[in-house]
Design a binder for these strands. Structure first.
Lengths: 258, 258
DNA sequence: GGGTTGACTTGAACGTGTTCAAAACTTTGT
DNA sequence: ACAAAGTTTTGAACACGTTCAAGTCAACCC
């Protein structure tokens, strides 16, 4: 491996690596992912083909580098833009809009990100170990939003909400990838409307009347999340811990139970 | 192209095509998608490499053939298993369980289905024209479930519910793909719990008190669905048709509005 | 039968991602 | 200054998906 065990007086390796990544991202942006060959990247960066593979084990790994980079940009942009004393809705709106505008230059290229991310065996898979760090950071972002925002939220919901918002934001990105409307107006409109809806749902779920249903739903969410986390470990898996309690609530007007 | 313009007394071409597909699916099942080369498929089917490409334009198209086949199997299984006079919950449970058991033999291979399906440019993309027919059929399945089931559901919800259930069932499949628990017990458990939850939510959404929120959410769903459908057409896109009405409802106990 | 048409089949060739053994260079220890 | 150990760099080679010009074969027409 590079950059270990020696002093690295000039960091020549690091420079080369950066140059390759820079060239790659530029080419991806201009010609798209498939059209950009590793040979072209190497030539553009002024190195040999084998050298490109010395720094990036595969073409896919260049996507992962891209993923890291945009994540950092988004985090930075978020932190500098976050106003104090705003509510969940306002903050969420800002964060998600920033996410899209950060990804903006890579719209046509972003498709392959999702393509590879959807593969269970890809390191880019959101549930894989390799991207665990970035994902945790990303969820952390939403945790801050939730905790620093005004408005009362039950503690059980407060625990899971960051993860739920992260999933929601992934959904928005997925929509954006498919959105071919001018300036992605459609996506921004969707953001406006869904953020509003999410805020309402959080408020609704905070209603004490909804407590039983909420608890059931949150338990389910936690279960799914944990299952995704374990994944490759062999696990005993018994059915304990999720008994069917009597969670039914009576609607105020005599409608069927929920 | 094959099988046009002539009488096809023996349907030799059709036989060859079937043989290739059969061989391919078997190999995918045993060695996985990536490990199975087109050369191996051709050899296994007793044809030349070029011949395999005569019938299937690409390796990816073999996945599409797989997609069609399992869809048909699932539909057949569903129709023969559907009991009369059952409610939404029972029917949904049955259909989704059948879906998973139909896909069962292809679990490790199914990953690439989602991988390619997630690519906006892939014909396998659920929103693309090429798989539109299969998707419509699939949604139709859920429409039957909704319409033939007992229980009162508001008409606006009834319209969108099939699509929503289809999306939900895709989510289950996505989970199943990642599920490495023995016999996919985890997925079946998830199905049990989410079907229950979905039934409750439908019931909750049918409550007249929820009407404003429901209407807003359904409008959003329709909007997203239409956007996905148009996609490649150039579209004007003005902001009409989605005004922010005063939809707030007052929770019975003075909680913040929803 | 002989010829024409079009479906079917072939295998060589191309471009691409990836691997690897060996060369070239840099740093460190003496 | 020299050697040893590490690192970076190279280009040839490989396997695979895909293309294509050319060949074979069966059905049809006269």
């Amino acid at each position: 491996m590079h950059r270990v065990g020696r002093k690295a007086a000039t960091d020549k390796g690091g420079q080369t690596k950066t140059r390759i990544l820079e060239t790659a991202l530029e080419m991806f942006q201009q010609r798209g992912y498939e059209q950009t060959t590793m040979r072209a990247i190497a030539e553009g960066a002024g190195v040999s083909l084998g050298n490109a593979y010395y720094y990036f084990h595969s073409k896919e790994q260049l996507i992962q580098a891209f993923y890291h980079r945009t994540h950092e940009e988004h985090t930075a942009a978020t932190h500098s833009a976050m106003e104090a004393n705003s509510d969940l809705k306002a903050r969420l709106l800002e964060v998600i809009r920033l996410k899209i505008s950060t990804l903006e230059p890579y719209h046509q290229f972003a498709g392959v990100l999702f393509k590879t991310a959807a593969d269970p065996h890809s390191p880019l898979n959101p549930f894989s170990e390799e991207s665990d760090a970035v994902r945790q950071e990303s969820i952390q972002l939403f945790r801050q939003i939730v905790e620093e925002s005004t408005g009362r939220i039950p503690s059980d919901l407060k625990t899971e909400l960051p993860y739920l918002l992260w999933v929601y934001h992934m959904g928005i990105v997925l929509f954006w990838i498919h959105d071919s409307s001018p300036k992605h107006k459609r996506t921004y409109r969707l953001i406006d409307h869904t953020v509003d809806l999410v805020a309402r749902l959080v408020s609704l779920a905070s209603n004490p009347l909804m407590s039983p249903l909420r608890k059931r739903a949150l338990r389910l969410v936690a279960d799914v999340r944990d299952a995704a986390a374990e994944d490759l470990n062999e696990n005993e898996l018994d059915d304990e811990g999720f008994d069917d309690d009597k969670l039914d609530i009576e609607a105020p007007n005599g409608q069927p139970t929920v």
